[in-house]
Amino acid sequence: MAEQQHILYPDFWVDKHSDYLFNFAIARINNYDLAKDLVQETFFAGLKSAKNFEGKASERTWLVSILKRKIIDHYRKINSIKGQAEVKMNFYENGDNEGSWIEERVPQSWDNDTEKSIENEELKQQLDYCISKLPEKYAMVFTMKTIQEFETEEICKELEITSSNLWVMIHRARTQLRKCIEDNWFKK
């Protein structure tokens, strides 16, 4: 029996696939406007390369594969932008103290880190603020891993990075966030 051949129906793309693609994008880049732009670009690219569609995968799978490329391109772009939102280091990078805490960034005791405060709305807003202050690529990897709860392997595959690369970024994001939450919440 011949395999079912899939056909593209670009006239229905927006109605059938835009919400799915949009949620796929927003889970990874966490920015409404950007996610919308990437979905739109995906449709454009799809239309332009429609003649290359072989009908082996479903229309949606094919569109998702285009969107994935767009997301990697975006990640590469933010990864290569130098100097943007400079990362504050928490540890000495070289010299005798290499790998030790930088004095002013040593964790301080928190007096009210109780279970109750986790449900505090203001603390959650503070967290959103601190995430928004992270360099974009750290925010992206951190959010995918921690908030969207993707598997490590999946993130590495999608962004074409190694797992040690991923852990370095998670580590930097988390130490930054810790410091930001300490400064803005626990020191008041």
Partner: peptide
């Protein structure tokens, strides 16, 4: 502190996964 923060992130994750946003 990390254990505390993980719980905080987890509660944000649970909130987020409930939402489905649309264009």
């Amino acid at each position: 502190q990390n254990n505390f923060l993980s719980k905080l992130y987890k509660s944000k994750a649970t909130n987020c996964n409930k939402e489905s946003i649309c264009i």
